[in-house]
Design a protein around this nucleic acid. Structure first.
Length: 415
DNA sequence: TCTGGGGTCCTAGGACCC
DNA sequence: TCTGGGGTCCTAGGACCC
């Protein structure tokens, strides 16, 4: 009745930093950070000083005076991340990729060919080390949740196999913060009730947990604490939204700032939607003010859109609404556009370039056709000459500090 | 020199329908 | 006219993950 531990979670260690150290041997053994204004990734040597991803570069340098900043070879990250996943593919088609450097695999169907899950995990680790030169940690367990925890425990450059017979003993000694879905807020709430280990969580009444964390989170954590994780591997998941954002530092909340920025963001989002023929019905904007307070506004249309100008106009109206309701805010620090309720896969259709109020009722116009034509022309030029060949407002945005486009593309999910 | 960018999921209240 | 209940969709905000 007890199932075997056949799920692997493979996670490349300090991935971006490891690639940099691989490509430049002079960086090996040294504390390095990928990025500049903000740390995108840190090597283990840098982590030992407390340097973490997402940390401002200045703070990182304070913690680690000899920290070496490297520019980031984003194309290499993509290539090597793909290559590592391909090693998993050699064993089973049941691979669920989570991100550029992380994936699950279920080897239940291939143990007769390649040996036990532990043997397979060892082979994968050796191959990734020998063929790519990168360290990868693997957790093996009966469920996805436990396999992921095991790979975290295995780091750096290790392997942890959790025997089903002793899995609860293993799990219950660990801190709740290792669980999937427990971040700083949940951890603090649990700590407020004296719950710090997964074992303590497991013996907490599920009703009490629900009152503390809400229905879904309470139920989920109660189940995971007993390693009851019903999730199966999903080899292909479609994206449910696509968005783009830009941090602005601290800029005046004025049209000369937000209009070109929104056009640029709308172009990023809409061109991706068009490329995959996945227009969407709901447009959401987010405005973050100088004090980091964020406000969002959304609207759901009757017809899905994918035209840059249409998206930019709707986003602009929503942002004007936010600013009108927060007239005391003088400066904005971030703008974001997201499109959701994506259609599965549709033919390009006519779009309506009308004001937000009109758009829901009125039929299309000649101007709509012209704009679809403009998008098509731009898409074709980019196909031939590259993304930078033509665009909206990118020059105006050069001044704002932002991460390289190549990094943004790494984070994009396949639509 | 406070705090990047791309996502997913859940909650709670209100509108609306049956 | 008043009452009740369930389901679905939408919006705004929040937590979390990589």
């Amino acid at each position: 009745m007890e199932t075997a531990a056949t799920i692997l979670h493979a996670d490349l260690d300090a991935f971006y930093a490891s690639v940099e150290q691989l490509l430049d041997p002079s960086l090996r053994g040294r504390p390095i950070a990928v990025g500049g204004g903000v740390v995108l990734a840190a090597s283990y040597e840098a982590k030992a000083f407390g340097v973490r991803g997402g940390m401002p570069g200045r703070r990182a340098r304070e913690l680690c005076p000899h920290l070496v900043f490297v520019g980031g070879r984003f194309g290499e990250y993509q290539r090597l991340g793909d290559a590592a996943i391909r090693v998993l593919d050699d064993f089973t088609p049941l691979v669920e990729r989570i991100s550029i450097d992380e994936a699950f695999a279920d080897v239940a169907g291939c143990t007769h060919l390649f040996g036990t899950p532990e043997a397979i995990a060892k082979t994968i680790r050796r191959r990734v080390r020998d063929e790519l030169g990168l360290p990868i940690s693997i957790g093996v367990a009966r469920t996805k949740h436990l396999a992921k925890i095991a790979s975290q425990v295995a780091k750096p450059d290790g392997l942890v196999v959790v025997d089903p017979a002793t899995e609860l003993a293993f799990l219950h000694d660990l801190p709740v913060s290792l669980m999937w879905g427990v971040g700083p807020a949940t951890q603090a709430r649990l700590a407020g009730s004296g719950i710090e280990t997964i074992g303590q969580l497991a013996t907490t009444h599920s009703g009490a947990l629900e009152r503390l964390l809400g229905h879904a989170a309470g139920q989920k954590l109660a189940a995971l604490a007993w390693n009851r994780d019903p999730r199966k591997l999903q080899t292909h998941r479609r994206a449910v939204s696509a968005g783009a954002q830009s941090a602005l530092g601290r800029r005046p909340a004025e049209p000369r700032v937000f209009v070109p920025t929104l056009l640029h963001l709308a172009d990023r989002v809409a061109s991706r939607l068009r490329a995959k023929a996945r227009p969407g019905r709901t447009v959401t904007v987010r405005v973050r003010f100088a004090d980091m307070r964020a406000v969002s506004r959304s609207v759901t249309l009757e017809q899905p859109i994918q035209a840059t100008a249409m998206l930019a106009e709707i986003a602009e109206e929503l942002v004007r609404g936010v600013l009108a309701d927060n007239a005391h805010e003088r400066a904005i620090s971030l703008l974001a556009i997201s499109v959701s309720h994506l259609e599965e896969h549709t033919e390009l259709q006519l779009e309506l370039p009308l004001g937000l109020a009109d758009e829901k009722r009125r039929p299309g116009s000649r101007a709509g056709l012209a704009r679809v034509g403009a998008d098509r022309a731009i898409d074709r030029i980019r196909d031939r000459f590259g993304k930078a060949a033509v665009g909206y407002g990118s020059v105006a945005l050069e001044a704002t500090r932002s991460v390289p486009d190549a990094f943004r593309e790494l984070a994009e999910k396949e639509l």
